[in-house]
Design a protein around this nucleic acid. Sequence first.
DNA 1: TAACAAAAACCGACCGGACGGTATAGTTTG
DNA 2: CAAACTATACCGTCCGGTCGGTTTTTGTTA
Lengths: 184, 184
Amino acid sequence: MSTPPRPSECRNASRRILSAARAIATREGAGRITIEAVAKEAGLSKGGLLYNYPTKRALLSGLLAQMLAEHRELLESVPERHPARTLRGHLETVLQSEDVDGDLSMAILATAASDPQLLDPLRAELTDDLGRILSDTQDAPGAMVAFWAIQGLRFQKLLKLPDGGADTRERVIERLRALIDDLK
Amino acid sequence: MSTPPRPSECRNASRRILSAARAIATREGAGRITIEAVAKEAGLSKGGLLYNYPTKRALLSGLLAQMLAEHRELLESVPERHPARTLRGHLETVLQSEDVDGDLSMAILATAASDPQLLDPLRAELTDDLGRILSDTQDAPGAMVAFWAIQGLRFQKLLKLPDGGADTRERVIERLRALIDDLK
DNA sequence: TAACAAAAACCGACCGGACGGTATAGTTTG
DNA sequence: CAAACTATACCGTCCGGTCGGTTTTTGTTA
């Protein structure tokens, strides 16, 4: 009658599957995300996984959605009240997710290569954020430069590109913070 | 005897193979780069390709090397004499490669996901450039912010992330140019 | 220049294995 | 019982790589 009182089970299975996928991506690399491997990691069978996510695409889509949700959560937990709150939020979010999601994000990039549509939710989210950022400041170009710099930082971490050493890095981040705070 | 330098033949096979791979990546997406497909596109057989590139890894490595070489060529062709010449070179290079190498870069990202070592040459090159940039300016943090912004721009184009519209985009780039020129 | 051998370049059938997805039979739970 | 859920066997496909053989190029010698 009323909705079957077992969303917990079903949800848990889905969540377990997603974290299994994340575990595999982090431990063995992005290319190792296969239905069988994820199912095994999650402690159920291939059929069981395919019952929850009928295709691999659906699985990846769910994975991306989960990451996006967590990202947004982190972003909104930035307490600071500030005209460029969102910008600041993005920066702190990038800094905070210390390499935890590295290989995982790589997984997303990898799949995006073969299925660009999977990135659509991400695009929508970013468009939203960007709109808020631009409408929060009078210096749109300055805000955009900061936004790009944050994205650059994100990919620099992701691909383990050089960053000029920890010391300069710290100073650069400080500079970036100052740039953002001076925006208004 | 009149043996004009004819390593051209041998080289041509390799180059033909690489451009075939690029064509496939651009036309059909990054995931479609397979040995058979590339061989067919290049007009030779699977065995023939594997003669030139003994493994797929070698093929991808060659692909990345070629792209790096072209990138460097572009970068060094920036005429401007300027303390932040390299920085400016990166910016103009990104702007110039108008979506031509989009899916191709995606291919590289995709493979990087499964084989992170392939990015090592890229890392070396960037480390080199970054060193030059930092030693060319007195404002290291400012230069790094600009560098990150350029990288962010690169990935924004690559993943087709939002950019706030062509008009603002143009203004942002102008701002970025000004930032770089004011560096010294 | 012709003959010829050796090496380089290339061919394409084939193998082994992984992977996504299906079909179906079984099990739990309300 | 029925619906939700799970397990397992299996299929078709694709793909990277191997291997034995063939063609083309090159160097040498007469």
